[in-house]
């Protein structure tokens, strides 16, 4: 994936802690608010909030807690919401395995990461054993613009 293009404006990011299942509710609420604000369709809103819920729970359960940073990206024409989930947990040794459906280490259905990836337009996972995990997702308003990729 390419790095953020220089032509992308970021609104001021919102940062929320992920420490309990109560925080997951705050995160769903905040992501819904952002998605509504940038006028995502209902389906897009629901997909983004659901992805956020999956990823925040991943941060909570596997990363031992962390935080989410939400930013609205805007380049004058295209709008996107970017969510970054970061934890300082044990990290993921085998990223491919963690991404595959059915793989679970936390007693869930094992759809969290792979499922969340299918719900958003761009998905990046960075992790090193012992160094924590950072997952960045991006959803564009209306769909991925042909000329843009700015995770």
């Amino acid at each position: 994936m390419t790095t953020t293009g220089p032509d992308t404006h970021r609104g001021s990011p919102t940062c929320l802690p992920i420490r309990s299942d109560m925080d997951l509710m705050w995160i769903r609420q905040e992501v819904r608010r952002l998605a509504t604000e940038v006028q995502f369709s209902l389906v897009q809103q629901t997909k983004l909030v659901t992805a956020a819920s999956e990823l925040a729970r991943n941060t909570l359960v596997h990363g031992g807690g962390g935080h989410m940073e939400a930013t609205v990206l805007h380049d004058g024409v295209h709008t996107a919401v970017r969510l970054v989930f970061a934890d300082c947990g044990p990290g993921i040794a085998d990223v491919d395995q963690a991404m595959s459906d059915g793989y679970t280490s936390g007693g869930g259905l094992g759809l969290g990461l792979g499922g969340a990836r299918r719900l958003v337009h761009e998905f990046r996972l960075e992790s090193q054993p012992g160094r924590g995990t950072t997952i960045t997702v991006l959803m564009w308003h209306g769909g991925v613009p042909p000329t843009r990729q700015a995770l």
Binding site: V43, K47, R118, L119
Partner: peptide, 14 residues
């Protein structure tokens, strides 16, 4: 179940 929820669940693989 709302249509938006159903679409999302299917995409999620559930």
């Amino acid at each position: 179940m709302r249509p938006t929820v159903a679409i999302t669940l299917v995409e999620l693989g559930l």
